[in-house]
Design a protein around this nucleic acid. Structure first.
Length: 785
DNA sequence: CCCAGTGTCTCTTCC
DNA sequence: AGACACTGGG
């Protein structure tokens, strides 16, 4: 392959600086629509083409599987283009189709196949397939390569069982869901049960830690991991085993992380360990042939509910970087040109996000024309709202021949809001796709079949065995299951150890023994073929043998037919997986299925209106966006109303939604909405009051939403006064531990200092408000003694 | 052991 | 309104 720089000419200067930065740390602060995916893909291409980096030593972390797939695709095209120029002196598209295919498959074999691109979860599960057997849990548990990945409902029923059955706790006080959430949170911060207990030294903390301990034991007994383990266990393994860490550290010399503002503590630890080989981050400076390149935007941090912490991004300069101010630093680049949206849309977005106090200074410059104004619609109820949206949709599609159904998106805060839109879209026969909600892999029949497969691949997976031991009905009821359970507890062995032994089953199960033995026979038979048969063959056999399909056929209902169809689709997915993947084992397929999100199925070019939550929409863009349900309690969600930090996250979510739009943006809300089957009055969202009046047209005059007076507003007016040049941060020399007084939050303690020079930001902990990030240039802080 | 009928809770957001 | 867990009669 010939070295080439002409593809870099397509980049703007800051993009180019980011892409061409070779070794060392780099933070790319990339606003919405500033071409960060482009920077990432071009960077990978540049590393391989111009710096001769071995594709195997590149690790790129994306936020979704879909993004990973797209990135591989784009890199493949980029390389094929280079080769087409070098070999044929023509552009790729000018070549005959068979030449194109040939080139692309060559690129696949030599480059893209060897790149590790994926989500934290997918990449970590790959690492674990190599190394999990070397991991030692502090309580002595170990795992095998055949581990299962439990989904959220598996995890929750495990927790419920521990709370109610094993520890006899009151499940009102220790609601399994919130306990599970607390455990997940602990794992996302790389806390062991003991560390969690230390963090919360009270009765509840002790109890949750105890559940956590039992939960770990149960996972180990099933040779299973939950989602959080996929990341935490590699981290703990790296911390305890130098040679394992050394291997991966040497292998991954160029690390790229997208959406860095949404990483949590454990994910950060992983990146840090891989970069420094376990050396203290402050001491580490051996960047020869190595880079750690992260891209993010603190204004788009929307995952704090799964322990994402955007101060990790703000700390990058101190952690990995040179810690110098913007003008001098060599470890930060800002992408501030927005290529996506009209300037009207951008203005509205910028205006909204300015209401947040927790942010770093960033300008998003428009590169496009003004465009249309934003339209804000007040509806009577959610049906009327859907009528409005679909009416606009049809109008625009009719009037603008260039607009296709696939160019429209309806974005909402909660999945439950999709229904009213679906009904009306169906009525007008407009094709649509709902992204999210019930995942394909979460359907009952799919989970059943996958439970069979998991049980076959992982003999210790008792949870899966129990799920399907009586599916279809084999006369194995609760009584029998209890007896089997008891036996496993007494013997301390997995369920399968009992099932495999005919004598034991006959003794324990009595009349049900026949069904249990039949089940055991099926599992065993399929398991025996694991080594020599293809996964698809085993599944086919399983579906016949188990009578699963026959039982559905016998039902004869429309619902059962649909389930049969879904199972068929699953089978097709296995076939496709085997075709597309190097490692096409059932284990690999299962991992893929566990980590698949509904977004991954979303197809572009199938020309359907997209319906999805704001969270799912991150990273996407649409010519026309409808942002719906802007009501207090819905968006911002009622759980965040009391907490200013949570409200700010909702506002970032709103910012994400607005910045998805390229040409047109519609915002809507209803006066009344159905909730739990009852009509409830609704009031306009706080965010409506923050829209810049001159940029918005409405159907009801703009007096409507009352502006809320909150401390946040006060902080803003403060800011306008203070943001003059001259009033600098140089006056003060800030230190961690300083006590300051904030105009609206009162006294607090400085805990961190971000940035340097006149670009300094402070993290201040207020007794009642929690931690805030404050720019002392914008908000006057008084120093207290 | 299985089914049908009743009661309970829920709507954050996702890998 | 709808999904899901629990209970009691067959």
């Amino acid at each position: 392959m010939t070295a080439s720089t002409d593809f870099l000419a397509k980049l703007n200067p800051s993009q180019r600086a980011a892409v061409e930065h070779f070794c060392g740390p780099l933070l790319v602060v990339a606003g919405a629509g500033s071409g960060k995916t482009r920077a990432l893909t071009f960077r990978i291409a540049n590393l391989v083409l111009n710096h001769r980096v071995d594709p195997e030593s590149i690790l790129a972390v994306t936020f979704t599987n879909k993004a990973a797939k797209e990135m591989k695709e784009r890199i493949e095209v980029l390389f094929a283009e280079q080769e087409a120029q070098a070999k044929h002196g023509k552009s790729l598209s000018a070549l005959p189709e068979y030449e194109q295919t040939k080139l692309r498959s060559h690129v696949y074999k030599t480059v893209t196949k060897h790149l590790w691109i994926g989500t934290f979860h997918a990449l970590c599960s790959r690492i674990l397939r190599f190394d999990i057997e070397k991991y030692q849990h502090p309580d002595g548990y170990t795992w095998k390569k055949t581990f299962s990945i439990f989904d959220e409902s598996d995890a929750q029923s495990l927790v419920k069982n521990i709370v109610t059955k094993q520890l006899n706790l009151d499940d009102k006080k220790f609601n399994p869901r919130s306990v599970r959430y607390a455990i997940s949170n602990a794992k996302n911060q790389n806390f062991t049960p003991a560390e969690l207990e230390k963090e919360q030294p009270n009765y509840r903390g002790r109890m949750v830690a105890d559940v956590y301990r039992h939960y770990e034991k149960a996972l180990a007994a099933n040779n299973s991991l939950d989602f959080d383990d996929l990341i935490m266990i590699p981290v703990k393994l790296f911390q305890q085993n130098e040679s394992v860490l050394g291997y991966w550290h040497n292998r991954f010399r160029h690390i790229l992380v997208d959406e860095y503002q949404d990483t949590n503590r454990t994910q950060y630890d992983l990146i840090r360990l891989l970069t420094t080989n376990g050396e203290d981050i402050q001491q580490f400076n051996d960047w020869r042939n190595r880079s750690t390149f992260v891209v993010g935007d603190a204004d788009q941090s929307i995952y704090s509910f799964r322990a994402a912490d955007f101060t990790i991004l703000m700390n990058f300069q101190n952690d990995f970087g040179d810690g110098l101010a913007d003008d001098d630093t060599r470890s930060m680049v800002k992408l501030e040109e927005n290529y996506r949206s009209t300037s009207n849309i951008l203005h509205v977005a910028n205006h909204i996000i300015e209401n947040n106090t927790e942010r770093i200074d960033k300008i998003l410059r428009a590169t496009r024309g003004e465009g249309e104004t934003i339209f804000c619609y007040k509806a009577d109820d959610e049906i009327h709202e859907a009528d409005f949206v679909v009416g606009q949709l049809r109008n625009l599609e009719f009037q603008h021949p260039e607009l296709k159904w696939g160019d429209f998106a309806i974005l909402y805060r909660t999945n439950a809001q999709s229904r009213s839109f679906e009904e009306i879209l169906t009525r007008y026969s407009i094709p649509y796709q709902v992204v999210g909600g019930l995942r394909f892999y979460d359907r009952r029949e799919i989970k059943d079949v996958l439970a069979y497969v998991r049980a076959i691949a992982n003999p210790d997976d008792t949870v899966s065995l129990k799920r399907v031991i009586n599916v279809p009905r084999r006369g194995v009821g609760k009584g029998t299951l209890d007896k089997l359970d008891q036996a496993t507890q007494t013997l301390g062995c997995p369920l399968w150890e009992i099932l495999r032994d005919e004598g034991s089953v006959k003794t324990l199960a009595g009349r049900s023994a026949k069904g249990v033995l039949e089940f055991a026979r099926i599992i065993k038979k399929c398991r025996d073929r694991l080594d020599d048969a293809k996964g698809s063959e085993i599944i086919q056999e399983l579906l016949e043998d188990s009578g699963y399909i026959d039982a559905l056929k016998a039902e004869g209902t429309e619902e059962a037919d649909e389930r049969i169809g879904n199972v068929q689709e699953l089978y097709n997915a296995v076939l496709q997986f085997e075709e597309e993947n190097e490692d096409s084992s059932l284990l690999a397929f299962l991992a893929n299925a566990s980590l698949a999100s509904d977004l991954d199925n979303m197809e572009e070019g199938n020309n359907r209106v997209s319906l999805m939550t704001l969270h799912s929409s991150k990273g996407l863009e649409f010519p026309v966006v409808f942002l719906v349900g802007l009501e207090q309690g819905l968006f911002p969600n009622f759980r965040s109303l009391e907490d200013p930090a949570a409200t700010e996250e909702e506002r970032r979510l709103c910012y994400v939604g607005i910045t998805r739009a390229k040409e047109r943006l519609f915002i809507s809300y209803a006066r009344e909405r159905r909730l739990y089957g009852h009509r409830e009055p609704a009031s306009p969202s706080l965010f409506l009051g923050e829209l810049p009046v001159d940029y918005v047209t409405t159907n009801s005059g703009l007096g409507m939403p009352q502006r809320m007076t909150t401390p946040i507003r006060d902080a803003r007016s403060e800011r306008e006064g203070a943001a003059k040049p001259g009033s600098g941060a140089h006056e003060f020399d800030w230190n961690a531990g300083d006590i300051v007084v904030h105009p609206s939050y009162g006294a607090g303690e400085v805990t961190h200092i971000f940035g340097a020079g006149n670009k300094i930001c402070l993290a201040v902990k207020f007794p009642n408000q929690g931690r805030k990030i404050i720019d002392p240039k914008l908000t006057k802080l008084q120093r207290a003694e």
